[in-house]
Amino acid sequence: MTSAIDNDTQGHYYSADYSRHPLALTPTSPKLKALADMCLNFSRELQNPPSIESGEFDTVKFKYTIRDLATVLINDATKLTIACKPPYTASAAGPTIATLGDTAFRLAGFVESVPASCGRTYVGSIRRTAGDALRSAVALCNSFLEIPVAIEADKKGEYLISTGQLWEACKHMQEKTPADNREAVAAKWRLMTGTLEDGVAEVEEFVREQETGAGEDGGEEEEEEDGWDDVLGESSKVRLTKEELAICVRCVSLFKLTRMLCKKVLARCILTADVSKPEVIAWLDQLGESGAAVADAVDEFGASMYASENVVGQARTFVEIATELVHVAQSFAEGEHAKWFE
């Protein structure tokens, strides 16, 4: 079977201009540092918005291309580690450095060829995972360099650990690369709903303590620390006024309804979206952003309860944000799905 890399034509952005490849003109001895510099520069470029706005692009084919490239990168990293570990010889290490550099070069090129029209969530996911792999490659190079290249997230470490980190980054590309913006938004939505679940549980527990007086009288200590006392100190023992507590009780019910709303949005809007339409791709991004805003609003409300600060205002803000999510969901929902949100 022919690899997707062998017959793919989408990664022309960098490969068409091979003169940009710094390893092509670098002598063998400083190649490892040149590789680290190149991977770091590419990872930083991928933090910028995509350079291509629109155009035809096969996201499903791209998923398999990235999977194959990740497999090649794992193999290249293993060979580089074996060649560069003590006792190091330039004749053995040089070819492996150049090979990994070529793979990293192609990875950056393929990712840069993804147009913005594929969707902000999809493009952002692709660029982040590729950037993580490239920074892991820098960390691997650093483990062999006497003077490491400065990177933001990773430090110089033992080469076996750095190799493992690069493997993990590549496996993430293999297993988590979405097929389109629908899959990207769905994955983000599931993470968001997990955060929402935690926030609702936290608010519900706090209200229960307020109603039973545990927050004032001490009560029984929780079997498992939730971390709030360490962060908020004595403010976590605050007592709400009757008006504030009544609002919180109503908000708990509203949060539970919102939790159900988010599940319905996933099933009725996101998973059924037709990503062949540009306007639907943009709508999915709006949904993802609105859902994230809802989860953030629950967290903000929880923080305001613990601090007994502007609970009423935070409740109003949450209602506005949740209402906006419904409006966004309604804008493209059709048939029975649209009726559910009325």
Results as ranks from 00 to 15, higher is better:
L196K: 08
A150R: 14
A186P: 11
V203Q: 10
L145I: 06
I151G: 02
I151Y: 05
A169C: 06
W189I: 07
L145V: 07
F144A: 02
E204S: 11
A186E: 00
K176G: 06
R190W: 10
E152F: 08
I147G: 10
E205D: 11
A201E: 12
A153S: 11
K171R: 07
P178F: 10
A186Y: 05
A186C: 04
W189Q: 12
P148N: 04
E175L: 15
K171P: 00
I161K: 14
E152C: 07
S143T: 01
D198C: 14
E175P: 02
D180M: 11
E205F: 08
A169L: 06
Q165A: 03
M192N: 15
I161C: 03
T193M: 14
E202C: 13
A153P: 05
M192L: 12
C170V: 05
L145M: 14
E183L: 10
R190K: 15
D198F: 08
E197H: 15
G164E: 02
T193P: 03
K156A: 10
L191K: 15
F144L: 09
W189C: 12
K156F: 04
N181R: 11
L145S: 08
E197Q: 13
E183D: 01
A150L: 08
G157L: 03
F206M: 10
S143G: 12
L191F: 08
L166W: 01
L160I: 00
D180Y: 13
E183G: 07
G157V: 01
E202M: 11
E175G: 06
W167G: 03
D154M: 11
K171N: 09
S143D: 00
V149H: 04
V200F: 10
E146D: 06
T195F: 10
V185R: 15
A169V: 00
N181A: 13
R190Y: 09
L145G: 13
G199N: 12
G164W: 00
A187R: 10
C170M: 01
R182W: 01
F144E: 04
I147M: 03
A169K: 08
F144I: 00
L160P: 03
E183I: 00
E183R: 06
K156G: 06
K176T: 06
E175D: 05
E146R: 14
M173C: 12
E197K: 15
I151R: 14
L196D: 00
Q174M: 15
Y159L: 09
G199I: 09
P148Y: 10
N181Y: 01
V203A: 07
K188Y: 13
I147F: 11
V185F: 08
V203W: 01
K188W: 09
E158C: 04
Y159G: 03
A186N: 07
G164N: 05
E202I: 15
A153K: 08
T163V: 09
L166A: 08
S162L: 04
K176W: 09
E202R: 14
V200G: 05
A150Q: 06
Y159I: 04
E204L: 10
I151E: 09
K171Y: 11
T193S: 15
A201L: 12
L166E: 00
K155H: 09
V149K: 01
F144M: 07
D198A: 15
S143Q: 04
T163N: 05
Q165I: 05
F206I: 07
M192T: 09
E175M: 13
P148W: 06
D154T: 06
T163D: 04
L160T: 02
T177G: 12
A184C: 08
G199P: 02
P178R: 02
A150C: 01
E158I: 12
